[in-house]
Design a protein around this nucleic acid. Sequence first.
DNA 1: ATCATTGCAAAAGATTTGCAAGGTC
DNA 2: GACCTTGCAAATCTTTTGCAATGAT
Lengths: 167, 167
Amino acid sequence: MSDEQSLGTVEVALSPLERFEEYLQSRGMRNTDQRRMLVEQVFSHHEHFDADTLIDKLPRKGQPGHVSRPTVYRTLNEFVDAGLLRKFELDGRAVYEHDYGYPQHDHLYCKQCQRLIEFQSAELIALRDAVARENSFRVTSHRLIITGICETCQRARRRTKRRVDLV
Amino acid sequence: MSDEQSLGTVEVALSPLERFEEYLQSRGMRNTDQRRMLVEQVFSHHEHFDADTLIDKLPRKGQPGHVSRPTVYRTLNEFVDAGLLRKFELDGRAVYEHDYGYPQHDHLYCKQCQRLIEFQSAELIALRDAVARENSFRVTSHRLIITGICETCQRARRRTKRRVDLV
DNA sequence: ATCATTGCAAAAGATTTGCAAGGTC
DNA sequence: GACCTTGCAAATCTTTTGCAATGAT
């Protein structure tokens, strides 16, 4: 019953910004314009993104609200530490997704259009824990990525193939 | 059942070197000393490795059998194309493992000692295919990494903790 | 006032590439 | 001999870091 693009949210007491401010306070870190700007931008859409995509969405150098590249990287790491974001690697670069207030899930990755499709599976968690138990392994987390071709791209590909065959 | 370090091998007609030579021929590529050296080195041990580890095991610059860094990278990519190796990302760098003649498996990754422990799970494959079917997704491959602390490191940690507690 | 944070420029680490010289078919 | 491959140096890409100036508490 889960939609591909939105697996629903979990009840949370605080907004991401509030949660982050709490984190900053607890560590004696400061609540700056840049950090607020980035929380806002990052949590305004529920998509997977990388550092460059995020930087592209921010105001350019000189414009108000601009944040420098090093600060973006630094702050993304803070978001991960604070439990706001989860980070993983795809094709050699870091990809981020919402973690705070968002349920555990895994991904189908279309190597044609680079789209990530989310899915949830309780059986996967059970399987993971069973494997861990057999190996006396203490699980912290896991990451499953199923790579292939999504429905849309399969259709496009078939169409192209047919066209090519006819020529 | 399966040993952690060796999941057994699959019946294959050709040795990795023979298979690679076939691949080279079929593509009009050449059978060079460097390529032969690297096939030999890579398939002499069944361990996960990265480019640097491999380079460290090769003769140094000046010694016979030395292969330059760019050629190592180029050749590793060829091995992946040829189906000899599988490549994945771990902590931001590429890790390789035998693919040709070796059964499909997944990994437990100890973040303490960086060791990769292999396991096989038919249920995982079934689960993967079921999820793909539900999403009309055509699977090419998948990668599951379960991160945590291995048995050995758990023991070491407990010992350390106890020691610390006593001081 | 103190001390964290920012932005800049530069560094770092992993991997790739242009090109001339050398090797394979 | 044709042309693929190698090694070198340099480039690339992504991410990190040193440091002086700036800003938050």
